[in-house]
């Protein structure tokens, strides 16, 4: 009876393999984790965006080669991302006149898959914030704007923007933590209570 509610990732993939117009669903399901994976390794927003775009364009072009049995879809995307990051590193090494080493050095404290997933989860939580809170977080963190600049653009007082910011951060913290705590920061948080 599975046909009635058959909506697993596998079917999304098969649908997109048959009809590339369905790729959008896969993109929606994986954008945050791919971006999180890349941004923790390249650290520059512009590079992270270029590489994220490259990964999804490559995934779309090569989707027919993806086989469900071999690896989970996210792992496949991460592999494309790793290769793209390595290519870019080799290119920049050559441009700087360095002889191409074997591989880029492992970035200091490269995040585990769990951390990547946790980070992606936070990005999705931001998208789910009430609109005015979300806008403040986006302006503050992605555009690096000050409270005063945000207040001017939104036509609100500094105090109101600060309040929105603090509410958003608290909300994110309370919704993010339960899953997050298990994976990484259990010690730190429990140490605080103890």
């Amino acid at each position: 009876m599975t046909a009635k509610i058959d909506t697993s990732e596998r079917l999304l993939i098969e649908a997109a393999q048959k009809d590339p117009r369905r790729f959008g669903d896969l993109y929606e399901a994986n954008f945050e984790r791919v971006y999180a994976f890349i941004v923790r390794r390249v650290h520059e927003r512009a590079d992270a965006e270029d590489l994220t775009a490259e990964v999804f364009h490559q995934a779309l072009a090569n989707l027919s080669k993806f086989e469900w049995r071999s690896v989970p879809f996210a792992a496949w995307l991460f592999r494309i991302a790793s290769n793209a990051i390595a290519d870019r590193w080799h290119r920049s090494q050559r441009e700087q006149g360095n002889s191409a080493a074997d591989d880029p050095p492992d970035p200091l404290g490269a995040p585990s898959p769990e951390e990547t997933e946790t980070r992606a989860r936070l990005f999705r939580l931001v998208a789910g914030l009430p609109r005015d809170q979300r806008v403040v977080i986006e302006m503050r963190f992605t555009a690096g704007k000050s409270i005063a600049e945000i207040a001017r653009e939104l036509g609100r007082t500094d105090g109101a923007v600060k309040q929105l910011q603090v509410r958003a951060i608290r909300e994110l913290r309370s919704r993010w933590e339960p899953a997050h705590k298990k994976k990484t920061s259990g010690k730190k948080l429990s140490a605080k209570h103890g």
Binding site: E32, Y35, E49, L122, V126, I137, E138, F141, I169, S185
Partner: peptide
């Protein structure tokens, strides 16, 4: 940790 992670937020 929330703040640190938000620095990576996509545009």
């Amino acid at each position: 940790e929330v703040i640190a992670a938000l620095r990576d937020l996509p545009r």
